[in-house]
Design a protein around this nucleic acid. Structure first.
Lengths: 334, 334
DNA sequence: ATGAAAGCGCTAACAA
DNA sequence: TTGTTAGCGCTTTCAT
C-alpha cells in the first residue's frame, strides 16, 4: 500500500488491479498520510526552516517578507515545505528549547538571514543539520553562505548620476560594523575614482544604525555643512526613509533639488517620489540557499555541506528620484 | 526517565538519587528529545501555524510581519511554538499536500489572517483542527474569529479633525467588497453626522483595490473635483502611500495644505510626514487568537472550539500629518 | 506480486 | 519506586 500511494519508482511490483483497489480505497476513506509518522520513520521531515533577521532592525520587514516568499517558492518547486520560525521565539524564550525544535528533525535544513547568535548556529552545525546563512553571515561559524556584492549596482548608480551631470555626491552610511558596510562604501568610492568624480569628505557622513531617526540626523548634518550636494547616495532604504523625511521637512524637493539613490530596494517603490535604488537579488539569494540545502539533502547524501560561499551581484533599479542637477548648481562655487 | 525529564507533576515517583543520575546522564550525552517522535506519540505537536494573508495584497508586509511577531510571542508565553506557513505555498503547489501538512498534527491549531480559500479552511475544521480567522474572516466557514471594530479610532479621527477646525473632509476608500470596508465608511459617516459635519458627496471617492496606484488615481480624481478638502481620510495605509505620492507630485504639502489621516497604522510611521493614523490593536488580536487556540488545546480538551467572535476596538495614533486648516480655507466659498 | 513484521523515539499504562 | 512493554502511523526489508 505504502509503495503504491507513494508512487515508488523501482520495479513495478504491483498488479494494476491491486493498485486500483488501493487507490480507490484510499480515496473513499479520505486517507492522507500522517507526516509526523512519516518523518519519524524516514528521519526527514520534508521541510526546511527560515529564520528571519532579528526584529531589532527597525522596518526590516519588507526584506524578511520577500525572502520568506522566495524561499517558500523555491522550496515548493523542489517538493519541500518551508516554515518561518520567528527569531523572536528563538531569542526570546529558552533558546535551547527552540533550537531543539529546529534541531531534531523538524526541519531538515535551516536558512538564517543575518543571524545574530553564533552558538545557536554552531549547535545546528554540530548536529549535522545543513545550514545556510544569508546576506550578513557570522563568519565565526563555517556554514554555506549566500551574500551579495554591492559593486555592480553601486557602480551603475554612480555612472547614472555622473551621466546626468552630477559631480557633488554625498554618501550617507553606517559606520563599518560589518564587512557589508565596508563593501558598500568601498564600491561607492571606487566607482567615484573610476569615473573621475572627487570624493568630498564633508559629504560623507557616518551613522550608528539603520533607522529613520538616524537618516534624519545624518541629513540635517549634511544640510548644515554648507554647499549642498546635487545627489545623495544612501546606503540603506531605511536610512533613506529618514533622509526623505528630513528633506521634506526642509522643503527640499527630490529630484528637483537633490537626487537620491538608495541601497536595498526594499522600500524604494513605496516612497514619493519612487526611489531609484540598488537592488539585491533576493529571489536568487533564496533560490541559491534552497538549492544548496536540497543538494545536501539529496537522496543518498547525509546532509553534510561543504561551506560554499555564493556571491551574487546587485543592479540599479531606475525610478524617479534622480534627475539632472539644477542648472545653477553647476555654476556654484566649490 | 521520560517522567523525570519531562518533570511530570503528579506524585513524585522517583528517588532523588535516581533523578540525579538521569539528569546528569542526559546532560553528559547531550540528550534532547526528538519532537517528532514525541508528537507522534502524544498526538500533539506543540506548535501552531500562522498563515498570513495572500501576497496579492501589495505591500501587505508590515501587517503580516507584526502579526507574526505578536503571535510568536503569545505562543511562546504559553510554551508553544509557532511557525509561519507561507500562503504562497498553500495556494501555489497542490494545495492538498500543503493542507495535509497543517492537518496532520504538524500544527495543533491554525491562525489565518484574511484567508481566501473557504474549502481549505473547511477541511481543517472538518478534521477537528482548531482554527481562528483574523481581521477579514470568511463567514462561510464557522470558525472562531478575531476582528476589529473601526468605530472608536475613526470617531477619534473625525473629532480630532473637527477640533482642529476642519469642515471639508474627503474619504478615499475601497468599494465595499467586504463588511470590513463598509464598516470603515459607516464609522466615518456616523462620526461626521454626530459631530455636525456635512458629508460632501464629491469628496467621497471609491477605488477598486488597496494599491499605491489606486491611491494616486483617487487623489487625482479628488484634485480634479474643484475646491480641495482641508483634510483627507484614507481608508488604508497602502492607499495613503499613493495619496501622498500624488500630493507630492502636485506639490501640495501635508499638513500645511491638507491634513491626512489613514487607517491601518502599518506604514504610517515610516512616511513623511509621519502619518496620524487609526491603529488596529494587532498585538491584542494575536493574543486573543492564540489564547483561544490554547483554550481549545488545553489538557483534557479535544480541540473543539465554539466559534467565538471577538471584536477589538481601534484607536487614533497622533503624528504629524494633521494640523489646523489654512486660514483662507475657512473663507473659501463653498 | 503480495503479505508479514520490525522499528523510527517517545510516552503512558501496567507489573514487579 | 523502578522496570517492562505496547503502540502512535508510517516505510522498508524480508519471506512467501
Amino acid at each position: 500500500v505504502s509503495a503504491v500511494l507513494n508512487g515508488v519508482q523501482g520495479t513495478i511490483r504491483v498488479s494494476d488491479q491491486t493498485r486500483e483497489r488501493i487507490v480507490s480505497a484510499a480515496a473513499e476513506l479520505g486517507y492522507s498520510p500522517n507526516p509526523v509518522a512519516r518523518a519519524l520513520r524516514r528521519g526527514r521531515s520534508g521541510s526546511i526552516a527560515f529564520v528571519p533577521r532579528p526584529r531589532a532592525e527597525e522596518h526590516g520587514h519588507p526584506l524578511t517578507y520577500q525572502l520568506g516568499i522566495y524561499i517558500a517558492r523555491a522550496a515548493a518547486r523542489q517538493g519541500y515545505h518551508s516554515v518561518e520560525v520567528s527569531p523572536e521565539t528563538i531569542a526570546g524564550g529558552d533558546s535551547k528549547e527552540q533550537l531543539g525544535f529546529l534541531l531534531s528533525r523538524r526541519a531538515d535544513g535551516v536558512i538564517f538571514d543575518a543571524p545574530s547568535s553564533a552558538p545557536d548556529l554552531q549547535r545546528l552545525v554540530d548536529h549535522g543539520i545543513p545550514v545556510v546563512q544569508l546576506l550578513r553571515p557570522l563568519d565565526a561559524v563555517p556554514t554555506a553562505t549566500v551574500t551579495v556584492d554591492p559593486k555592480r549596482g553601486i557602480t551603475e548608480a554612480v555612472i547614472h548620476l555622473v551621466a546626468l551631470g552630477h559631480q557633488r555626491l554625498a554618501y550617507l552610511g553606517k559606520a563599518d560594523a560589518h564587512e557589508v558596510e565596508r563593501n558598500r562604501f568601498a564600491a561607492f568610492h571606487t566607482a567615484l575614482t573610476t569615473n573621475g568624480v572627487p570624493l568630498i569628505d564633508d559629504l560623507v557622513i557616518w551613522g550608528e544604525n539603520y533607522t529613520i531617526d538616524e537618516g534624519q540626523r545624518l541629513t540635517r548634518t549634511l544640510l548644515s555643512r554648507g554647499p549642498m550636494p546635487s545627489a545623495i547616495f544612501v546606503s540603506s532604504d531605511v536610512l533613506a526613509l529618514g533622509v526623505l523625511r528630513a528633506l521634506y521637512a526642509a522643503r527640499i524637493r527630490v529630484p528637483d533639488v537633490v537626487s537620491v539613490i538608495s541601497y536595498d530596494n526594499t522600500h524604494a517603490d513605496m516612497l514619493y517620489p519612487p526611489l531609484t535604488a540598488v537592488a539585491q537579488p533576493l529571489d536568487l539569494v533564496a533560490e541559491s540557499a534552497v538549492g544548496q540545502l536540497m543538494d545536501a539533502l539529496a537522496v543518498g547524501k547525509d546532509g553534510t555541506m561543504e561551506p560554499r560561499r555564493v556571491v551574487l551581484p546587485t543592479r540599479l533599479c531606475l525610478r524617479e528620484s534622480t534627475a539632472a542637477p539644477r542648472a545653477h548648481d553647476a555654476a556654484w562655487p566649490n
